[in-house]
Design a protein around this nucleic acid. Sequence first.
DNA 1: CCTTGTCGGATCGTTCAACAACTCTCTATC
DNA 2: GATAGAGAGTTGTTGAACGATCCGACAAGG
Lengths: 249, 249
Amino acid sequence: MASPSAADDDPGRGPDTHAGWLRAVAEEVRSFDRSSTAERVAELLRHRVIEGDLPPGHRLSEEQLVDVLHVSRNTLREAFRLLTHEGLLVHRLHRGVFVPELDEDDLVDLYRLRRTIECDVVRRLHGLDPVRLRPLHDDVAAGEDAARRGDWVAAGTANMRFHQHLVALAGSRRIDETAARLLAELRLAFHSVGAPQRLHEPYVGRNRALLDLLVAGETDRAAKELEDYLHDSEAELLAAFRDRSRRTP
Amino acid sequence: MASPSAADDDPGRGPDTHAGWLRAVAEEVRSFDRSSTAERVAELLRHRVIEGDLPPGHRLSEEQLVDVLHVSRNTLREAFRLLTHEGLLVHRLHRGVFVPELDEDDLVDLYRLRRTIECDVVRRLHGLDPVRLRPLHDDVAAGEDAARRGDWVAAGTANMRFHQHLVALAGSRRIDETAARLLAELRLAFHSVGAPQRLHEPYVGRNRALLDLLVAGETDRAAKELEDYLHDSEAELLAAFRDRSRRTP
DNA sequence: CCTTGTCGGATCGTTCAACAACTCTCTATC
DNA sequence: GATAGAGAGTTGTTGAACGATCCGACAAGG
């Protein structure tokens, strides 16, 4: 997993004789290094939100979290900013940060962008080295395994990873980041709806079918199938969402 | 002062009879509200960066900006976070924030995402109300006007607005936001290259042509044209970039 | 009874000052 | 000439403080 963050090295001055060797170490150290307190706090909260431990609408109290996490308010607020820009928290001026409550419009919007990105990525695949499908195979297998066990939360996780890896085939850092934000928000939506089996069961098999098309190099058919897939998934999610809204108005 | 002008009725449930009316007001108040100090500072810096007043690679000193802007370091840092997540600044731990220096890989990456979004938006347009093309007409006209005057910076601005409005036809908040980030970063790239005439002149006419196709409802042909358009633009930008790199190594 | 104005507690927005941690540069040393 | 280390300068983080704003409750008025 190379992270080609631009413009890091200074090939200009200095005695960079054994550069190649050091470069690798420096890279590794840096990625280890890259843990400001705020980012570690953000990582922790991100996990909580994505896993659904914090219910939608819940307010994250600064005072409370400062006590629990043993960081200063300023640092905590920086973590909040990070997550806010990932769409995992919403910030209301003078009121604090909350776990977002997505509405139907948000779901439609999320799927709109999702279709745009995922379908386009698949459509543009050609001359793909089959080795790069390896992570997708693993994810599909993980999903099937989870389904056999009846662990639909794990199936959902595998599904998310499948789609993240699918998008990664484009080899674009910015597409990956956009998709990551998107899928994280979507995960929020799944949690607010519940009913993981209903939402995930149909797509264990469809992921397999999609992957088969990719293996066969049938990118156009794969894109078409993915389009239908995502429409169906959206419809299912909206229906489940409405069911839930009816129960708890 | 509340005189409910007839128009809006919500023939549904509950006591929310003039819901639509209130909704609009709430929206307006909220957007008015949205003025924390950090965001105002961010807006100021954003303008500076986008307009190219700060050269790529320049470090924004906290101490210095605190003095100039008369805000606290914490507030300034929050503004930095905002811009960092828009891609307009990069943050290196313990070293500060810098105006990004995009390299060729970044340009390729930006255009990759750009093609994905813009072409897909156009491809999915159908049954479009011609009224919604109004902003695009204005932008094309502004571009043509700037070109006549030889003001290629203004032409570039008009071009950016054209593409932002183009993407807005999808009617998706998240697509708009993604495109905004994208175009802001691209703008950075244009500045680091210079040569605005070379980069913008050809697309004044092509924007007009593209718009004509949209007016005619020929979305497929428009998408195809846009695809070529963006490929050409990318190639031109890369070539200009290499020319410049050769001059200043 | 419902609306409107007022008050106090709680929380957020922002500032400030201080110290710790880190990077960069320059110098002394081998 | 390369290396190690000291010092200066900058960022990272903390904790406390004060004003601004939100929220719920309660009283005054129609």
